[in-house]
Structures are given as C-alpha cells and as structure tokens.
Amino acid sequence: MRAVDSSHDAINEPAKAPQDREALATHRRHLRKALVDDPELADQLAGLVARATRARASGARAVTIGGSHAGTEATGDGATNTALR
C-alpha cells in the first residue's frame, strides 16, 4: 500500500512545487516507467498530446496561432490597432 502512496505522491508533488527539480525528476521517472509498463497508456497519451497541440480556428474572421505570437491580430469590420511605445 505504501508503494502506491509513494507513486501517487511522486506524481502529484510537481504540482505543489513546480520549481522543485528533484520532484520533477522523480515525476519523470515514474511517468516513464508507467508508459513503458503500459503501452496502451502510452498510445492514449500520445493521442491526447497530438490533439492538444493542433491549432484550429473556425468561423468568419477566426484567427489561429499554432505556436508563439508576438504581434497583434485584429478581426472585424473597421478594426484598428494602435501600438503604444
């Protein structure tokens, strides 16, 4: 029972302290082992990640940014952008 609690702690610890490098390393080890031990889980996770990383836009004047963006996007009739420096 304690092994299950320990794994649960290792998986959830990074959420409590995202800057804790030890917790992140332990989390990665547990995740890697879980994915190696359960190929079906690995396939499901790969599918979720693939769907989550696709950018989609729908509808008139929709804007999609599939990565990072450092500019201005405006849609609509008579849209005006003003850059304040």
Rank of each mutant, 00 (worst) to 15 (best):
A23C: 01
L48Q: 08
P39A: 03
A10K: 00
A17C: 03
T82L: 14
L41I: 02
P14N: 03
H8L: 09
V63S: 14
H27T: 03
A3Q: 13
A55V: 08
L41M: 01
A42W: 04
R54H: 10
M1E: 15
H69G: 11
D20T: 04
I65L: 15
T64I: 14
R32A: 08
G71H: 15
A17S: 04
G71R: 15
L84F: 15
R54I: 10
L41P: 00
R61I: 06
R61H: 15
L41Y: 01
E22K: 04
Q19D: 10
A55G: 08
A57P: 09
A50L: 12
L41A: 02
R56S: 09
H8T: 11
A74M: 09
E40K: 05
G67S: 14
V63R: 06
A23Q: 01
R56Y: 07
S68W: 04
D5T: 05
R51Q: 07
Q19A: 14
H30L: 05
S7T: 06
T26Q: 01
E73N: 13
A52S: 11
A79E: 10
A70D: 08
A70M: 09
H27G: 03
A83Y: 12
R56H: 15
A52T: 06
S58N: 13
A50W: 06
A57G: 09
V63C: 07
A10V: 01
P39K: 04
Q44D: 06
T53A: 11
R2K: 10
G76C: 06
E22V: 08
I65F: 10
T64L: 10
G67W: 02
H8E: 12
D5W: 02
A17V: 02
S6D: 10
L48A: 05
M1F: 07
A62V: 05
T53M: 07
A46H: 02
A83F: 11
K16T: 05
M1L: 13
A60E: 06
L41G: 00
H69D: 09
G78N: 14
A57E: 09
R21Q: 09
E73V: 12
S6C: 06
A79Q: 11
N12M: 13
P14K: 00
D20I: 06
T72H: 15
A34P: 00
A50P: 05
S58K: 12
G67V: 07
M1I: 11
A74G: 14
A17I: 02
A15Y: 14
R29C: 04
I65A: 15
R56A: 09
R32L: 08
A70T: 15
H8V: 14
A55I: 08
A57W: 10
L24A: 03
A57I: 06
I65G: 15
